[in-house]
Simulated scan of single mutants.
Amino acid sequence: MAAIVADGDRRAMLKRVTAPTLVIHGEDDPLVPLAGGRDTAASIAGARLITIPGMGHDLPLALVDTLTDAIAAHAKGVAVSA
């Protein structure tokens, strides 16, 4: 949490992100409230937000399939340009 506070507002930097972005945020995150995940997604043009009920600020093994499925679906939906 100290690192988050010390780093400050990242929204200006996030607005420069051009990569297709998927924001995954736990709805029960005790360190970064859900509003932070929503704000992150809103700060990146075209970003998609997925919230996970019951998930905190960790990656529980029980959610590995859910998370990998979400990431894989996002990756498959991204147009590849060479």
Rank of each mutant, 00 (worst) to 15 (best):
M1K: 06
M1T: 13
A2Q: 09
A2H: 11
A2V: 12
D7C: 05
G8E: 07
D9H: 08
R10K: 11
R10S: 10
R10C: 09
R11T: 07
R11D: 05
R11L: 03
A12M: 00
A12L: 01
L14D: 02
L14M: 06
L14K: 04
L14F: 10
K15E: 11
R16G: 10
R16M: 09
V17M: 06
A19N: 09
P20F: 01
P20T: 03
P20C: 03
P20Y: 01
L22R: 01
L22P: 00
V23T: 04
V23R: 00
V23D: 03
H25P: 00
H25Y: 01
G26D: 06
G26W: 04
E27A: 08
E27H: 09
E27W: 08
D28I: 00
D28G: 03
D29E: 14
D29R: 07
D29H: 08
P30H: 09
P30K: 04
L31P: 00
L31R: 07
L31Y: 13
V32Y: 00
V32T: 15
P33F: 04
P33Q: 11
P33K: 14
L34A: 06
L34N: 00
L34Y: 05
A35Q: 11
G36D: 10
G36T: 04
G36L: 01
G36F: 01
R38A: 07
R38W: 02
D39K: 13
D39P: 01
T40E: 01
A42I: 01
A42F: 03
A42P: 13
S43Y: 01
S43L: 02
S43F: 01
I44G: 04
A45S: 12
G46D: 06
G46K: 08
G46M: 02
G46C: 03
A47N: 02
R48N: 03
L49Y: 11
I50Q: 14
I50M: 12
T51P: 04
T51R: 05
I52V: 15
I52S: 02
I52A: 02
P53G: 10
G54M: 08
G54E: 05
G54Y: 10
M55G: 01
M55E: 02
G56K: 13
G56E: 13
H57C: 06
H57T: 10
D58Q: 14
D58F: 05
L59F: 12
L59P: 00
L59G: 02
P60Y: 12
P60H: 13
P60K: 09
L61C: 03
L61S: 09
A62R: 14
L63T: 00
V64H: 12
D65W: 04
D65N: 14
D65H: 08
D65Q: 14
D65M: 04
L67A: 05
T68K: 09
T68M: 14
D69H: 15
D69M: 10
D69R: 15
A70S: 15
I71Y: 11
I71G: 09
I71V: 15
A72G: 05
A72I: 15
A72P: 03
A72Y: 14
A73Y: 09
H74L: 12
H74D: 08
A75Y: 06
A75C: 14
K76G: 05
V78L: 07
V78E: 09
A79Q: 13
V80K: 10
S81W: 02
S81C: 04
